[in-house]
Amino acid sequence: MNEAPNMKIDLCGLELDNPIIPASGTFGYGYEFAELYDINILGSFSFKGTTFEPRFGNPTPRIAECPGGMLNSIGLQNPGVHAVIENELPKLKKCFAKKVIANVGGFSVEEYAKTAQLLDECEQVGLIEVNISCPNVHNGGMSFGTSCEAAAEVTRAVKRATTKPVFMKLSPNAADIAAIAKACEDAGADGISMINTLLGMRIDPKTRKPVMANKMGGYSGPGVFPVALRMVYQVYEKVGIPIIGMGGISSAKDVIEMMLAGATAVQIGAANLTEPFICRDIINELPYTMRKYGINDLKEIIGGAHNG
């Protein structure tokens, strides 16, 4: 009865000590945080969205604030997949012994596949997470994540390029996110990551201009939690593959809610930026919160809110 609660979960054959995973774009390539705490306590982490070519990203200001969180328009700044494999992964290996989640961005179906193929050869990469919120340059800039056909096409191309589990990371800006999730599952996806940021903007009344140079940006943080939770709940009813849930998670209680909605694991994004020790704190707090809600084995609550 007084045994330590079990936080272990299984993600397509990847055994995680706990379901806590820092989200892509808020944890760099890991070593900034390794200076703060031993990041080996994490379940895993998802590294900065990586594209085939290096990218500087959007002009600054790239950040704006709102009461429930923040907006960002980083524009996928990254050194390109070759530099990630040559420089970042070896550096990461020195401070992180576990498997990492490789987050892949792209602007064409071929680019996603080429990048995934290179990452397929990295032994450190446990699974590939495909960010389909990016605009498709061959289709008037429409995001891959808002069309079932485009999402399925990327899924098929990435699946052909790698033998590692492929998680499709969905955009909440789609009209029917559950339909996109189903299209990805039917195209062979091993799992779903959700949600990416919601498109938003801020205007400075003094200058009468948008705050961010790119005008619009992605909204995330605690304000999006109820939306993310509802979407995970809906997608869980539509698909049979595991879901990594994220969007506004900032406490151990949020983690439990997200898992009850249907998530097998969770990611934490914006909260890392304002509270750099948040993932460590949630991991420490989780056993107590589990006890409080009478949970002995965390994986048993996955989708628990759907029963009855």
Partner: peptide, 14 residues
């Protein structure tokens, strides 16, 4: 620059 984190994690201030 406007900052998301202030310690190198978000690429907000490039």
């Amino acid at each position: 620059e406007r900052m998301g984190c202030g310690f190198g994690a978000c690429m907000g201030c490039s």
